[in-house]
């Protein structure tokens, strides 16, 4: 396997080619971008239930970017479905903690397809791609 195949694992390519929860979203959805490369994501979160106990029915996204940023987003939307705001924030923090070296990268094991990003997050120049949507989601969940 070449380095490229290791980096761009089949799961990553699958999420890039067949993104989950991707729908066209309008101008009024909150957008997050990475000015250094122009990658951009927008989110629309659908909630079910009320107050503390409300859970995420679906995270819809739209955007453009490289296969790392887009697949990372697609994976995230899958992980967050069915979670409360608090749980979702924990998952996002967990991932960002691993990326920033505060947690062991072995901890990715519990994160489903996200494990495929293990190689990417070791590359300083690609971390920005992998974290774009997670940073955006963190802001979104913390703000609202």
């Amino acid at each position: 396997m070449s380095d490229f195949d290791e980096l761009y694992q089949e799961i990553i390519r699958d999420h890039y080619k067949h993104p989950r929860n991707r729908v066209p979203l309008g101008k009024d959805c909150p957008a997050f971008d990475n000015p250094s490369c122009g990658d951009r994501v927008k989110f629309l979160i659908e909630w079910e239930g009320e107050g503390e106990g409300a859970v995420i029915k679906a995270v819809n996204f739209d955007g453009s970017g490289c296969s790392i940023s887009m697949s990372s987003t697609s994976m995230m939307t899958e992980l967050l479905a069915g979670k409360t705001r608090k749980q979702a924030l924990e998952i996002v923090d967990h991932f960002l903690g691993i990326v920033h070296g505060e947690r062991d990268s072995g901890d990715l094991e519990e994160m489903g397809d996200v494990i495929a990003l293990g190689g990417v997050i070791k590359l300083p120049v690609r971390v920005k791609c992998a974290t774009l949507s997670w940073n955006g989601m963190k802001r979104l969940l913390s703000a609202s």
């Binding site: 070449s2 490229f4 980096l7 761009y8 250094s36 490369c37 490289c66 690609r126």
Partner: peptide
């Protein structure tokens, strides 16, 4: 995406710029 192109070329030893 240009990043993916650059990463592929890099895996073959070719350094270009993307952005």
């Amino acid at each position: 995406h240009a990043h993916d192109m650059a990463a592929f070329l890099d895996s073959r030893g070719i350094a270009i710029r993307a952005g």
